[in-house]
């Protein structure tokens, strides 16, 4: 039952369920594993690490437990310790796809995107194509700054499991990065709705909603490119026209640009306020 709650994304119910155990059942390897995984899912990683280390001391190296312990250590920023745990697991089974992907996430957190990519490809060669592999590929592409590849892999992940919140969040982020704000908002909104506790996702969905507002349409170039690059472009046009002897045209463009700048300062805060009022803060 505890495993079921965990599977459907209700880790707090898992902990409640495990609280009711007594006697030898509390020392069962599954009790340690589910408690550790639930604590990790709730972002209580320090507690998860204690529970899982305890479990490993009782039951010896057990791959799923090593996997959750490694992930918890990574979430705590203890990257060398996380690496050691994943390598311990991989020394027992060098081709375990979950451990390979888990280790790839540690490498991503350490900024070693190339190695992470190689690990994910090794996982892919041992596991049939899955949400986990496609999602990990999308994350590697994000780390490498290859936003179009990220979009492709996250769409792939969604095609395996359209309901998967992580795949939706990745697809939403990739869509926003590649300039498709409409589907980006749709994905981020559904991901945020599936994980109501995730404040970052909620903020991302709200930011995507802001970009999609009709009043924000003229400001799309700012969302798509670095605003300062747009600004340099405008300055180049103004001075280019002036140097070309087209003083009036240059002045007219400069005035339009000024109005555009004022618009870009005034409108976003107003739209944000409007959206926040609608959503409740």
């Amino acid at each position: 039952m505890a495993g079921h709650w965990l599977q459907i994304g209700r880790p707090e119910r898992t902990l409640d369920e495990l609280q009711g155990l007594s006697g030898d059942a509390t020392l069962d390897y599954r009790a340690y594993l589910f408690r550790g995984a639930a604590l990790h899912a709730l972002d209580r990683n320090a507690e998860a690490i204690d529970v899982l280390r305890d479990g490993l001391a009782h039951h010896g190296p057990f791959l799923p437990m090593l996997h959750v312990l490694g992930s918890s250590l990574r979430s705590e920023g203890l990257l060398p310790e996380a690496e050691a745990v994943f390598l311990q697991g991989l020394s027992l089974d060098p081709n375990d796809p979950d451990l390979l992907i888990g280790y790839a996430h540690v490498c991503l957190a350490a900024g070693q995107a190339q190695k992470a990519g190689a690990l994910v490809e090794r996982a892919a060669s041992h596991a049939p194509e899955s949400v986990a592999v496609s999602a990990a590929r999308a994350q590697v592409a994000f780390a490498l700054g290859q936003d179009r590849d990220m979009h492709r892999h996250s769409s792939e992940a969604l095609s395996y499991d359209p309901e998967n919140p992580q795949a939706r969040a990745l697809h939403g982020t990739a869509s926003m990065l590649t300039g498709d704000a409409r589907s980006g908002y749709a994905s981020l909104r559904s991901a945020a709705a599936a994980q109501p506790g995730d404040a970052d996702l909620r903020d991302a969905a709200r930011a995507a909603r802001l970009v999609n507002h009709p009043l924000m349409l003229p400001l799309r170039p700012f969302a798509r490119f670095n605003p300062m690059v747009v600004w340099i472009g405008a300055v180049a046009i103004i001075y280019g026209l002036r140097i070309a002897g087209l003083g009036t045209l240059s002045f007219a463009f400069a005035m339009i640009w000024l109005v555009f700048c004022v618009y870009s300062w005034v409108v976003p805060p107003l739209v944000r306020r409007l959206i926040n009022r609608k959503w409740g803060s």
């Binding site: 060398p80 310790e81 540690v106 957190a109 350490a110 070693q112």
Partner: peptide, 11 residues
């Protein structure tokens, strides 16, 4: 690929 390469954690 399965050799440790991470020297420091992150704060």
């Amino acid at each position: 690929l399965l050799r440790p390469t991470i020297g420091v954690g992150v704060d």
